[in-house]
Every structure is written in C-alpha cells, then in structure tokens.
Design a protein around this nucleic acid. Structure first.
Lengths: 161, 161
DNA sequence: GCAACATGTCTAATATGTTAGAGAGTCCGG
DNA sequence: CCGGACTCTCTAACATATTAGACATGTTGC
C-alpha cells in the first residue's frame, strides 16, 4: 500500500539540513532578543550600509508583506529607521540605528565563532561543498525550466467523488 | 563601513536554493487546493499508510503546534481522519480518507514528472550531489556540536546605550 | 498633458512557524 | 496504591509566510 514516489522530497531535505545548521545559531540570535529574520536584515544592512525594502526582500528571501511587519517591529524596537526618498516618493531607505550598530558589532563575531565550531565538526570540505552546491542551484545558468501540463481543476475539496 | 562577516549566510543559501526548487512544484500543489505542508503530510501518510502526529512532526519537519492546526483544517477538508488509540488515550492515529487517496494518486505522478523535468535542466549529477550533501549534513554521525559561550544578556531592546 | 501602464509599498485574510506552558494519560518507584 | 516524573497533544500569544489586491507615485506614448 506504500505509495512511495520515485524521488525523495528534496525541498524537505533542504529544510531539514537547514534546521540542522540553524539550530546552532538560533540560541545566539534569540539571546540578543532578535528573531532569525531580524538578524538576516541587520546583517544585510550592515553589509550594504543602507537598503531599500525591495532590496532587502531579494537579499534576505523575505516577501514584501512579511517585511512590512518585520520592519515596523524593528522600528519600534529602535533598531532601524525608514525614510522616504526625496526624488521618488514611492521608495524608502532603511538604515540601522547606532544601537543596532552596537548590537551587530557584538553579535557578528559570535556568529563567526559558531561557524568555526560547526566547520570543525562538519569538516571544512563539507562546508566548502555546501557553498558550491548551493551556488550551483541558485546560479541558474540554465534555460527556463518548463512547467508540466496540469490536468483540469477538479473540485477535490468539499465535494463528493 | 561594510561589516561583512567571514562566512556567507549558509542557512539563507539553503532557503534560496530550496525556493529555487520549490517554485516549480508549488503551482502543482496549489492547483489541487493544497498547501505545501498539507502535501508533505499526505505524501508521508501515503508512504507509511498511517502515522501519529508526533511521527508526522518528525518526518515532515513541522512543529507540533503548527501540526495541530494543519490537521484540523485537513480534517475539515475531508482529507484525513484522527482517531484516538484504544491502548493509549494520549496518542492519535492519522489516516487518509478515500478522497485524499485519489488526490494523491493524481498528484503524485505529476510531482514525479516535474522532478524529471528539473533533473533534465539541472543535470542528473547535480541532483545526485544534492541528495548526497543533504544526507551528509543530516546524518549527524558526529559528536555533539558545542555551543559557544554567550556574553551576559544586556538589555539591548527598548533601553539606552 | 493625459491616459495607460509600470513600480514600490502597504493592507487584508488566511496558513504556518516558534516558544512557553497547560492538561490528560501513562509509567514507575516507594 | 499513590505521587512524581514522563509522554503526547493541544492552547495561547506572537512573528512570519503566502496570495491577492489596494494605493500612491512614476514613466511612457500618443
């Protein structure tokens, strides 16, 4: 009766592997009262100095509607400021506050430390291999991937048959 | 001013790579009125015939509080049934309904088809490499990974200095 | 200049993620 | 027995994910 598909669930393997890594960083991040997403954003702004929401979305893999809320909370926490651009009133610039700068200056080195510990345990080759494989998947130096043809939509839900 | 850490954000790379894959499956899943998590669960039950919530949590990478809601909705949709075990009143057995069986029988092959298309585009070697690397990360045939020492908690948030 | 289109952000509604803890049921030692 | 420790599920509270669409601003072509 086991309807086992020919391919193991690859996205789910990514999820599990990611968690295997992230669980070693989460305690550090929460220790400073941040969420994972908030840290992703601070790390990105720290690197680029200032960013627009749409750039943060792309860099941090956060969808626009989520970001709105995250930034609002971070603004309330006194971590970032949002200022509208003069030349284009649609756009916004997000910057870190001095407090966030200090926070990143303390948190950043700890993250790096933990990376070293993990590299020690996993082996530097595996870490290297991880970066390479991820880049290959993301790089997308390939043609557009076609979508298989879908059958007509049936009313599967809340309907007999 | 660029505070760039020594290590690229590896969990985030996992996230991006995962999305690069998942975006090709999402349309198929939503076409049948399912969410990604609902499909993960149906696929798992299809493979094991019946599962307990705690097993689903582990297999599908879903935390217990999330699962409660997901299963409730799936029950409302007539996709699964929850029955308490006789011998242990704490435990629950989750099974697919006939309707869900039919749904999986239609959806499963389409997922496999899409995997083949992706394998075509990515190259079979990369897919193989992906499975291997993920397994290496998850396998955890390593000692416990130590947690770095954290500095005393400061009141970073909503506090001066 | 104005209409049509494009862009950037946000709102709304629903689903899930995350942490802490409650509640019931089970197991085990005294 | 019986009480304490443990297991499994669930609730509560908040943060984020996802989809659709509103809204204001910018841009382009006529």
């Amino acid at each position: 009766m086991s309807r086992k598909l020919a391919y193991r669930n690859l996205p789910q393997l990514f999820l599990r592997a990611r968690e295997e890594l992230l669980c070693h960083f989460r305690p550090i991040i929460t220790h400073f009262g941040l969420t994972e997403q908030q840290w992703r954003i601070l790390r990105a702004i720290g690197e680029y100095d200032q960013l627009e929401p749409r750039e943060i979305c792309e860099i941090c893999q956060i969808l626009s509607p989520s970001l709105t809320g995250v930034l609002s909370r971070m603004e309330d926490m006194g971590l970032v400021t949002r200022t509208r651009m003069e030349e284009d009133q649609r756009r916004v610039i997000v910057r870190m506050t001095p407090r966030a700068e200090k926070l990143v200056a303390e948190l950043g080195p700890l993250i790096v430390e933990q990376y070293k510990v993990i590299e020690q345990a996993f082996g530097a080759e595996l870490i290297q291999e991880l970066y390479e494989v991820m880049d290959k998947v993301i790089a997308a130096e390939r043609g557009p991937i076609p979508q298989i043809k879908l059958p007509p939509r049936k009313n599967w839900i809340a309907d007999e048959s």
